[in-house]
Amino acid sequence: RRRVRAILPYTKVPDTDEISFLKGDMFIVHNELEDGWMWVTNLRTDEQGLIVEDLVEEVG
């Protein structure tokens, strides 16, 4: 499975499927959606939700 790491922190918009995260958080990518969004699991918090790919980098 594809893994990505947050390069910046992010605070979710209330009442959306987004998740908040810290710089350095690792995610497993489940689905890549339109307009650069990804459905992921945050490995630190075990939370699932949407993040935008501009805020993460690939992990080898």
Results as ranks from 00 to 15, higher is better:
19 I>N: 01
1 R>N: 15
55 L>Y: 13
9 P>F: 06
12 K>T: 04
1 R>T: 15
17 D>N: 12
49 G>K: 00
41 T>S: 07
47 E>P: 01
42 N>F: 02
44 R>E: 06
18 E>P: 02
19 I>W: 01
5 R>Y: 06
1 R>V: 15
15 D>R: 09
38 M>A: 04
34 E>M: 14
28 I>H: 07
1 R>H: 15
46 D>I: 12
28 I>N: 08
46 D>M: 14
9 P>C: 15
3 R>L: 14
45 T>S: 08
16 T>R: 04
10 Y>Q: 05
55 L>C: 13
19 I>T: 02
37 W>D: 03
53 E>A: 14
43 L>H: 04
44 R>Y: 05
32 E>D: 11
29 V>Q: 02
6 A>P: 00
21 F>G: 00
57 E>A: 08
42 N>V: 02
57 E>D: 07
54 D>I: 12
51 I>Q: 01
38 M>T: 03
25 D>W: 03
39 W>M: 07
3 R>T: 14
31 N>K: 15
36 G>K: 08
40 V>R: 00
42 N>D: 04
41 T>H: 09
27 F>P: 00
44 R>Q: 05
53 E>W: 15
38 M>Q: 03
2 R>T: 08
32 E>T: 14
53 E>P: 12
20 S>A: 04
36 G>L: 03
30 H>Y: 11
58 E>L: 07
51 I>T: 03
23 K>L: 10
13 V>Q: 13
52 V>K: 15
35 D>Q: 14
18 E>K: 03
29 V>T: 03
28 I>Y: 08
10 Y>T: 03
19 I>Y: 01
17 D>R: 12
16 T>L: 03
24 G>M: 04
27 F>M: 09
36 G>Q: 05
1 R>G: 15
43 L>P: 03
1 R>P: 15
51 I>S: 01
28 I>K: 05
29 V>N: 01
18 E>Q: 12
20 S>M: 02
25 D>V: 01
49 G>M: 01
27 F>R: 00
21 F>T: 02
35 D>E: 10
1 R>S: 15
39 W>E: 05
26 M>A: 06
40 V>A: 11
22 L>N: 12
16 T>P: 01
15 D>G: 11
33 L>E: 09
30 H>L: 15
59 V>T: 08
35 D>C: 15
32 E>V: 14
